[in-house]
Design a protein around this nucleic acid. Structure first.
Lengths: 192, 192
DNA sequence: CCACATTCTAATACCAAGTACTAATAGCAG
DNA sequence: CTGCTATTAGTACTTGGTATTAGAATGTGG
């Protein structure tokens, strides 16, 4: 049986979320309707064509900060001065929170801060060695977490980074990270 | 003056690195040659067409987004005695490591330990309040992390949980978590 | 049951950014 | 002049669409 228009459009949205690389033809087969119907649906729903969707995704990726591969950062880095300071934003979405109470799981806040701290360090390889953290108040669904990081100490092979995460200027998380760093040749040496 | 073939090809590579969204036509204008010449160059250099390049970037991006939301618990809990102790396993897969060096990102180890610590606490709601952690040695792709947690102290509204994560019986991570707990009615009261 | 609306399908012309291929031209080297 | 490389030109075809028009199928109210 064929779905109603509304249901089909809902289905379309779901399918595209799961796989945004679907062509109209593939979607038509999935829904058992003609290609034209799918195009009309896309119009109504304001969904751009395959190539535009792909381009968008690619651009989002490309716009990010150069020096560190952006896939390795949780949260969007909006400012970064290597070995000095940085800022990143993470919007708390439903995949970040406990279903029960809508409070963000601590490890996402940690991940944001940790990624930023590591991204700050100007070295071939940077790894967290230790950290001391405090979750000052629970963060809830929909809140935007701004993490401010600054380097507070540089030693021979360690950098200390302090991160404060705020929601509406209110501190929600605090962390002191000790980041271990190496240049590639040095690591190669160690590997032997 | 027009560049030599070699120089033009070098230039092409540079330009595409700076802006991978260039069409053949735009590149032709940049180099002051015909579109066909650019296509021949791309052939020789093994550079795919614009759409393929964009698609590649988008796919890379998409895979990350996916791996970034390991929904529920991180690591599989294999033993749990509420308010006493627990064990969980996490196998380090490629979505957990830095592409560059195959070392696990700290926040995954943290997430495993944090989730276990919270799971241990027998309360309606349990949230991490603070933690002190040490990454003892880097963990690599393919290694199985066994996290052992035990409650070390119970106060009126706080529980302290110690977590040790081992790979082949060798400690790789240590964490002391302070978990804040509440019963639902209590939290409701606070909300007011 | 008819009339009309909604929904769907079909068909056509067109576009961007290509691939794949053939052929022609320019410039220079031996 | 012949041969070779580099370059340009042109044609047919491809994908994944847009935009538009027309017609068919289905449902709904009066």
């Amino acid at each position: 049986m064929r779905l109603s228009k509304k249901e089909r459009q809902k289905k379309l949205i779901r399918e595209l979320e799961a796989d945004p690389f679907l062509t109209d033809e593939q979607m038509a087969k999935l829904c058992n309707v003609s290609i034209q119907t799918i195009r009309l649906d896309r119009m109504e729903l304001g969904i751009p064509e395959l190539r535009e969707r792909i381009k968008h995704m690619a651009e989002k990726n490309f716009d990010q900060v150069r020096s560190l591969s952006p896939q390795e950062v949780i949260g969007e880095v909006i400012d970064l001065q290597l070995d000095k300071s940085g800022v990143s934003i993470l919007e708390i979405r439903k995949e970040h929170v406990f279903e029960r109470n809508g409070i963000a799981r601590g490890h996402y806040l940690f991940a944001q801060a940790n990624s930023l701290a590591i991204g700050l360090v100007d070295a071939e390889i940077a790894l967290t060695a230790a950290a001391e953290i405090r979750f000052v108040r629970p963060v809830r669904l929909g809140e935007k977490c701004m993490a401010y990081a600054k380097v507070v100490e540089v030693q021979s092979s360690r950098t200390k980074v302090e991160v404060q995460t705020k929601v509406n200027n209110e501190v929600v998380f605090y962390g002191l990270f000790e980041v271990y760093r190496t240049e590639e040749d040095q690591l190669a040496k160690e590997e032997r």
